[in-house]
């Protein structure tokens, strides 16, 4: 690819991401409602985890400030990484609208991932800030002294966003076979909820299980990794490397499944 071509496609990706950002920035009231809900859950999970830490003041190798940070920043990231909402893809496959996506001079996967990245950027500015702010005021959070940790956190969040987009893209692609993806989407919610550290920090589990989750599933890369980077639980390098590996795997997997799915595409009512 020549330099001019590369910069043109980078501009297109940015434009699509910008459109995603603007699209979600119109849902202001839903943003307020969502931030409120994340905050309520922040209080809930934070009190529970601090109670687990109890008099020892430590659980799974996290001290109280680290646990509070884990919960509140986790609630903030939940809507940035966006576990629960599926991409429009499945609905567009079912209705046949995916055809107009395919007619565009831009790759299907890139379009969806870029739009979702725009959405994540908007969530970072709104829904991330509210619970983290409340948590800081109500409990006091762990703030790394080393400025590099913040940079590593930003990189880690960006990778988590893209990996999660790709995973949900894969869930959406199953619509080419199943048409109705609610079942697969439930499976995703179960697995992602259990394996990502959303309900409790994964190190509370036995070591072998944590290792298995990291090696066999992308889920720890979605939430546990950025949170561990932020609270400086061990060096950031291996965590980022683990995320990078899963990023590569999900990209390749999404390409393969997309190619096979498109072969099965039948336009209904055409």
């Amino acid at each position: 690819m020549t330099g001019a071509n590369a910069s043109r496609s980078a501009r297109v990706v940015l434009a699509v991401a910008g459109a995603g950002f603007r699209r979600y920035s119109t849902y202001r009231q839903a943003t307020v409602a969502g931030a409120f809900t994340n905050t309520v859950f922040g209080f809930m999970r934070c009190y529970v985890l601090l109670s687990v830490a109890g008099v020892a003041g430590e659980a799974g190798g996290y001290d109280r400030a680290q646990l509070a940070t884990f919960v509140w920043v986790g609630q903030g990231l939940l809507s940035v990484v966006n576990f629960w909402n599926q991409l429009d893809l499945a609905e567009r496959v079912r209705s046949g609208d995916v055809v107009s996506d395919l007619l565009r001079p831009m790759d299907l996967m890139t379009t969806y991932v870029a739009t979702d990245a725009g959405r994540a950027a908007y969530a970072m500015l709104t829904r991330f800030v509210v619970p983290v702010g409340v948590g800081m005021l109500a409990f006091g959070l762990y703030l790394p002294a080393n400025p590099v940790a913040y940079l590593a956190f930003a990189v880690s969040v960006a990778m988590a966003v893209v990996i999660c987009s790709l995973c949900r893209y894969l869930v959406g692609l199953t619509a080419f076979w199943l048409l109705d993806v609610r079942g697969v989407s439930m499976l995703w919610m179960f697995a992602a909820g259990a394996g990502s550290g959303l309900y409790f920090p994964l190190p509370l589990l036995p070591d072998w299980l944590v290792t298995l989750l990291w090696v066999a599933t992308p889920f720890p890369a979605l939430l546990q990794a950025p949170l561990d980077v932020l609270v400086e639980r061990g060096p950031a390098g291996p965590l980022l490397a683990g995320q990078l590996a899963w990023l590569a795997v999900t990209v390749v997997l999404a390409r393969i499944v997309q190619r096979r799915g498109l072969r099965r595409l039948v336009i209904q009512g055409g």
Partner: peptide, 30 residues
Amino acid sequence: YRFSFTLELVFSTVLTLLDVATVFVLFTVN
């Protein structure tokens, strides 16, 4: 959509087990 319905029935059921499982995990610590 039978396959999807079965998956949904099974996993929406076990999804709620996560809350119970969480309590178990917490009690392994304290």
